[in-house]
Design a protein around this nucleic acid. Structure first.
Lengths: 134, 134
DNA sequence: AGCATGTGCTTGGTATACTTAGCGCAAGCA
DNA sequence: TGCTTGCGCTAAGTATACCAAGCACATGCT
C-alpha cells in the first residue's frame, strides 16, 4: 500500500451529477465501502471481478449501472451473495410476495449468539442514534 | 388472437448460433415458454415489461443477454419473482461463500435503507471487532 | 534529486444492449 | 376480392456498458 487517494482528482463537480439514475449512486457507494472494508485497491478488486479498473471507478462513482453479471462478479469478489448485491442495487424488491424485507438490524443483532448482551446493547444504541430513533 | 407464427421467417440457420453465450439461449426459451403459458403476445409482454417488442424477440431467441433491470421487469410482467428469473439466467448460483455469520447482523446492516454507507461501515467494523473476526 | 511502484481517475474507442420504423404472413370481415 | 388488424421478425440507428492506454499525484528507496 503505497499510493494514496491523491486529491480526488480534477473537479469535484460530482455531488449530484445523477448520471444514470439515483439508486445507482448509492450502489456505487456501497461497493466502494465494501471494497475498502476488505482492504482492496480498485485494481485488485477489478482483477478479481474480471472488469477493468477504470470501469470499476466509474461504477463506484455512480456513472454507470453495471450489468447483472458484472454485479455478480463483484459480489463474488467481495465474498457476498449476489442477492445482497442485487438488493442493494434495488433490483430485487418488487411486486411478488416479497414481504420480509424487514429483517431488521436490531432483530439480527439480538439473535446473534456471538455477541454478549453488553455488546448487543452497544450496537443497538449506535444503530438507533444513526437512524434518529433515539 | 388473429395472426400466427408465419414461418419463423427467413433462414432457420439458428439452432446453434451461439451468439452471445450458451446459457442465455435457455433463458430465452424459458421466457418464451412462460409468456406463451400466460397467453401473452410479444407486444403485450413487451409493453408491460417496458421494452420494445423486437428486443424481446431477440432476447427470446438468445441473441442478446438482457440487463438486470430488464430481467426484473420481465419477471414482474410474468408475475414471477426476480430471483427466479436471475436463477434461470444463471446469475445467482455462484459461491455464496458459505459463511454462516454473513447471514446475520452484517447482512441486515447492509440491507438497511435507513443507514448511510459510512454508518454501515462503522457498525460493521464495530461488530467485527466484537466477534473477533479481524 | 531521480526512479520505481502504487493509487484513483480521464480520455477515446469498441462492443453490445436497446429502440423506432417497416416487412411478410395469417386470420377475420366487407 | 380486397382491406384491416395482429402476429413475429429484420434492418438500421442510438444509447450505454465496458476496455486499453495513459495522466497526475503520492509514497518509498537509493
Amino acid at each position: 500500500m503505497r499510493g494514496g487517494e491523491s486529491k480526488h482528482s480534477a473537479i469535484m463537480s460530482d455531488e449530484e451529477k445523477d448520471g444514470t439514475g439515483t439508486a445507482w449512486r448509492s450502489l456505487g457507494d456501497f461497493i466502494r465501502s465494501q471494497r475498502e472494508l476488505a482492504n482492496l485497491s480498485m485494481r485488485q478488486l477489478a482483477e478479481i471481478a474480471k472488469i477493468s479498473n477504470p470501469y470499476l471507478s466509474q461504477v463506484e462513482r455512480g456513472l454507470y449501472k453495471p450489468s447483472a453479471d458484472v454485479l455478480k462478479n463483484i459480489a463474488n469478489a467481495l465474498h457476498m451473495s449476489a442477492e445482497t448485491m442485487y438488493a442493494q442495487a434495488g433490483l430485487l424488491d418488487d411486486s411478488p410476495d416479497r414481504d420480509e424485507s424487514h429483517h431488521g438490524v436490531e432483530h439480527a443483532v439480538k439473535l446473534d449468539p456471538q455477541l454478549s448482551v453488553d455488546q448487543k446493547e452497544t450496537i443497538i444504541r449506535i444503530y438507533r442514534s444513526f437512524i434518529g430513533r433515539e
